[in-house]
Design a protein around this nucleic acid. Sequence first.
DNA 1: TAGCCTTACGGCATACGTAAGTATA
DNA 2: TATACTTACGTATGCCGTAAGGCTA
Lengths: 95, 95
Amino acid sequence: MELRHIRCFIAVAEELHFARAAERLHIEQSPLSRTIKELESHLAVQLFERTTRRTRLTWAGEVFLEEAHRVFAAIDQAKASVKASSPLSTRPKPA
Amino acid sequence: MELRHIRCFIAVAEELHFARAAERLHIEQSPLSRTIKELESHLAVQLFERTTRRTRLTWAGEVFLEEAHRVFAAIDQAKASVKASSPLSTRPKPA
DNA sequence: TAGCCTTACGGCATACGTAAGTATA
DNA sequence: TATACTTACGTATGCCGTAAGGCTA
């Protein structure tokens, strides 16, 4: 699993529409569909319920959405901490 | 930034030795070195101090290591939650 | 048949491995 | 000269886009 999978998942989960999610991600529907499928396969869980007219989150999908946001929160936090810790990329270890 | 970068970083940060870290990751030193360089470049921060005889974490590196573990903790949590929420990949929304 | 997701397939980007390079003790 | 990281370069993996397919209302 890579962040790419989670990014794609969040887009689809929020749009509930593969075409719009793909547009938002600046990729095409086809690779997006595959990426979601890979993620579902990796987690061994179905994240979306695809009827021909509607895409909905399964319960597992709703749970994963919340956790997915936390992953990105952790990444943002990591970036922020690093930036704060080292404004000059050197080693000003605080007292 | 992808998880690959963070995985590689953690290995080097824990081994403090590119060759051993590479072995642990089952890749060669060369791509590992590049991946770390990409990460540093992306974060605009130096994470390791490479002398010819020794690899050490910079202060920013130490900070990032802690955060990096949180990222993977979040991912593990996500996997665990999904698994718990959906033993059968269906939608047994708890009462 | 119109809307929406998936599968098939080929091209391209990029991640990897091998080998050579650089630097210090 | 031995140890350890980096750079150069060719190959292979895999991600993406185009196009065709399948399914339901």
